[in-house]
Structure formats: C-alpha cells, structure tokens
C-alpha cells in the first residue's frame, strides 16, 4: 500500500511588503514567495509520512503560474516534498479561480497517471493574495473527491485509508472522518511548519521537478486565462492612505478625554 499526496502551492507577493496591482489589473508578483498558508499543508503531509513510514507516502507539490512561480515548488521541495510539477503556460495569464482550478485539477490528474493515483490533496486554507478559499472546493468538485475545509488537526484514520480531522465551525468543533480520495484544506493552526536545513536545501536540488504546458495536460487553452474568466476585474484603486489624526499625551486625564472623543463621534 502506498499513499500519494498532492500539495498545491501558490507563488504570491510577499504580504510583509507593499503589494500592488499592475496595469493589466493583475497582482504584481515580481517580489513573490511561497504563500505562507501553503506551508501548513506541506507540514501536515510531512507529518503524516513521518507518523507512518509503512504507509509509503509520496508528496508531490504542484503549482500553476509563470516562470517565477518555480520559487514556490523549490521551497516545497526544500521543506520535504518528493517531486514537483509546475504548470507554466502563457494562456493562463489573468485566469480567475475557475481557470486556475481547472489547470490545477488537470495537473493533479497528471500526477495520478505518473504515480499510480492520487489519494489526498492537502491545501492551505486560502492564498494570502486572493484570500477567496474557493480553490479547495473547486478541486473537490472537479476531481469528485470528498471535501473537508479548514481542518485544524490532521491524523491518519483507521486502516490508513483516510484521515481523522477536526475543524472549527462558527459555533462548534467537529470531528470528521474522511476516506480517500479527498481534498482537505488545513488552517494555520494545524501545525508549526519546519524550516528547511542546509541538508534539505541541498537534497532538494536532486529531486525531480517538471514543467508542464496546458497541451501536456490536455487542457483547452481557450477555457482559461483572462478572456475566459467568469469574474472580470474592471478596476483596482489603491486605498487612500489613512491619515494620522489627533494624538494626545497622557497627562493624567487621557482616559476622560478619550471617553469624550468617543461620545463626540457618537461611538458609544
């Protein structure tokens, strides 16, 4: 028995820095990194592998994006993924979530063909740029896999043909059982992602990593990209910077002054 896990990863503009839109209304990715939220599913996959060596887990990272997105798969390989695929095709530029998820689903199927099936797709809870959280359910729908979103803990299920998970809903914590094949998104509470050490960084250079085009995946290029987008961005306006307002020094009465300000602004 072996278990094949795919972790989709995204190359996103560094959220710690100023992020901007380009003239074509796409997000500028010139200063990009692996989405921080994609480190958690990678760590979850690695933890599953380490918890059960006999399960013979193979972890494959997959990304969709331009040439620079190879940085995301490189980091994934350094963290411990065994192999990577990068779907890079000019026709993908300007894709919405439907287009991206179509390319990603095709890439996951491709992994399945090369590795004898995909049992589990582990994703982050959102990307740190789009923040829509729609790709995991879209993948479940396209692949006809079971779906669990926002898992807070990830463990093997009985017999290791599935997982035992917990997830927080608005007012409760659920325990969930899911059999493979499944798409599971994990939150940033699921674990503490490891930092790749020097040895892991060197080892990553020898791992298999392939670039695929839409033609390789059998995806019709006219179904993805800006022209096929079902949601079309019409404008992107930078938010006017917030100006600093009043600043007072506490000279013993600041609490009273603040209460007066709140009353004056009708905020009480």
């Amino acid at each position: 028995m072996s278990v094949n896990i795919v972790v989709p990863v995204k190359y996103v503009p560094d959220a710690q820095k100023q992020r901007t839109f380009r003239e074509d209304l796409t997000v500028d990715r010139s200063d990009a990194i692996l989405s921080e939220l994609d480190e958690y599913p990678l760590e979850a996959a690695l933890a599953l592998r380490e918890a059960a060596p006999e399960a013979e887990v193979t972890i494959v990272a997959v990304t969709v994006g331009p040439a620079a997105a190879s940085g995301a798969v490189k980091k994934a390989l350094q963290m411990g993924a065994d192999a990577a695929f990068h779907v890079d095709d000019a026709a993908l530029a300007g894709s919405d979530a439907l287009g991206t998820s179509a390319a990603l689903a095709a890439a996951i199927q491709h992994v399945g063909e090369e590795h004898g099936g995909v049992d589990l797709v582990l994703t982050g809870m959102a990307s740190t740029d789009g923040e829509m959280s729609v790709v995991p359910p879209m993948l479940a729908e396209r692949l006809d896999f079971a779906l669990v979103t926002r898992a807070g803990t990830v463990e093997w299920g009985e017999e290791r043909n599935g997982l035992a998970l917990t997830r927080a809903t608005a007012d409760a914590t659920q325990t969930v059982a899911v059999a493979f094949p499944a798409v599971v998104s994990v939150t940033d509470q699921a674990n503490e992602p490891r930092y790749p050490n020097f040895k892991a960084i060197m080892a990553a250079k020898k791992k298999p990593s392939a670039v695929l085009t839409l033609a390789d995946l059998g995806v019709d290029a006219s179904t993805v990209g800006r022209d096929a987008a079902a949601a079309s961005v019409q404008s992107a306006t930078p938010r006017p910077p917030r100006a600093a307002g009043v600043k007072i020094q506490d000279e013993g009465e600041a609490g009273i002054q603040l209460a007066a300000y709140l009353a004056e602004q009708r905020l009480l």
Binding site: A15, Q18, R19, T20, F21, L25, V27, D129, G130, E131, A229, A230, A231, S232, V233, Q234, S235, A236, T237, P238, R239
Partner: peptide
C-alpha cells in the same frame, strides 16, 4: 471588494 488586506478596492463583473 476590498483586496490585498484593504490596500486596494476592486470592481469585478460576472461575465456569466
């Protein structure tokens, strides 16, 4: 909608 952590406001039209 407000995107990039409130840094931008975008308008988006469904084409479907």
């Amino acid at each position: 909608k407000s995107v990039l952590a409130g840094g931008y406001t975008t308008t988006v039209e469904p084409t479907t």
